[in-house]
Design a protein around this nucleic acid. Structure first.
Lengths: 110, 110
DNA sequence: CTGCATACATCGATACTCGATGTATCGCTT
DNA sequence: AAGCGATACATCGAGTATCGATGTATGCAG
């Protein structure tokens, strides 16, 4: 178990943010995350598809079958209004956590 | 499930960093994290003690029974050389992840 | 017509956090 | 001296998430 492919608990955040830029299919989401992160965020399909299901179930995203740019059938995900609210909340929570962790790492004496 | 008490996967990092400042017992570690993070990092005992066990098993920390400042028996944890190496690695990995996630959140077009 | 990239999805194993529960002692207040 | 809150340890089961393996299918290039 050398290194995780991503920080646990942040996948929903990443996916929501990605589809907030425009409708996208699962494979495309994975590609986007890889590219923009310089191959740091390697989200496997076994993590991604369950995550997308979660978003649908919670009403944070909607799905629609369409034709992809390369001609294959693909499921495009769109963020909903509830999803945008959730995204904002998760983003804030994430920054709060990172800030707190940095306090520890910087190691000020209390 | 409103908000998690910490980012999953970062607890070992936090504990290692804390005891790298000097030997400390479990209860004290939780207190320290609370204080320095302004009550953001609320690590429960059910998370902390298993984490400490992990550190011992992996040889990243050593434990010794002593008397606490308040007079009770307490188990003081000290970071080992291997633990310091591990800490550095986890710290680097964490920053890499956070940097990558920020790329997504800032949402540059690729 | 073969292989690779695209595109979907599920499953079991593994790991981690979280809340509840339990024990015990110290020191302060009543 | 009895009671209570804070200190201090630890374990257990439930819930949740990630990961790797596996399976299906199609479009396109060579």
């Amino acid at each position: 178990m050398p290194q995780p492919d991503l920080l646990p608990g942040t996948l929903d955040l990443l996916v929501l943010k990605t589809i907030s830029r425009g409708a996208l299919h699962g494979y495309g989401i994975a590609q986007y995350l890889l590219q923009i992160s310089d191959s740091v965020l390697q989200v496997g399909e076994g993590s991604l598809y369950p995550a997308l299901q979660r978003l649908l179930v919670n009403g944070w995203a909607e799905a629609e079958w369409r034709q992809s740019e390369t001609g294959r059938r693909a499921r495009y995900y769109t963020i909903t209004a509830a999803g945008k609210k959730r995204l904002a909340a998760e983003e804030e929570q994430f920054e709060k956590m990172v800030g707190a962790i940095h306090m520890v790492l910087r190691g000020r004496t209390v």
